[in-house]
């Protein structure tokens, strides 16, 4: 073998033997790694969103129901009809 290649091989062999040993995981990395795993976990985020959407829809339905109660009452109240008729009569009397 060429002496230069031989020297280079010996040099690389020595470098291979002196590779530093890996250290233990630094503080905090474990938590970050777990958080990354949780964030990427399939399904979890979607289910959470769906539950929130369902809750929101239910709340909206309740609010709509509550707000419709006075309206329903007013349309079935005979007095309110009387007031409407009287109001329209006054309006037509005043017209030129």
């Amino acid at each position: 073998m060429n002496p230069i290649d031989d020297q280079l091989n010996r040099l690389l062999r020595v470098a291979a033997k002196t590779e530093s040993a890996p250290a233990s995981a630094p503080y905090g990395l474990e938590t970050r790694a777990l958080a990354a795993w949780r964030a990427a976990k399939p399904g979890d985020g979607g289910l959470w969103d769906m539950a929130l959407l369902v809750r929101g829809l239910m709340l909206a339905i309740v609010i709509m129901g509550v707000s419709l109660v006075p309206l329903l009452n007013s349309t079935t109240d005979p007095f309110s009809e009387y007031v409407q008729v009287a109001d329209s009569t006054i309006a037509s009397d005043d017209a030129p």
Partner: peptide, 22 residues
């Protein structure tokens, strides 16, 4: 050392050899 002797490097020279490779 590499040019002068055909033997492997000493333990004391290994860190320097590694840095040289770098």
């Amino acid at each position: 050392h590499l040019a002068a002797a055909p033997n492997e490097l000493d333990a004391s020279e290994k860190v320097a050899a590694s840095e040289l490779v770098e």
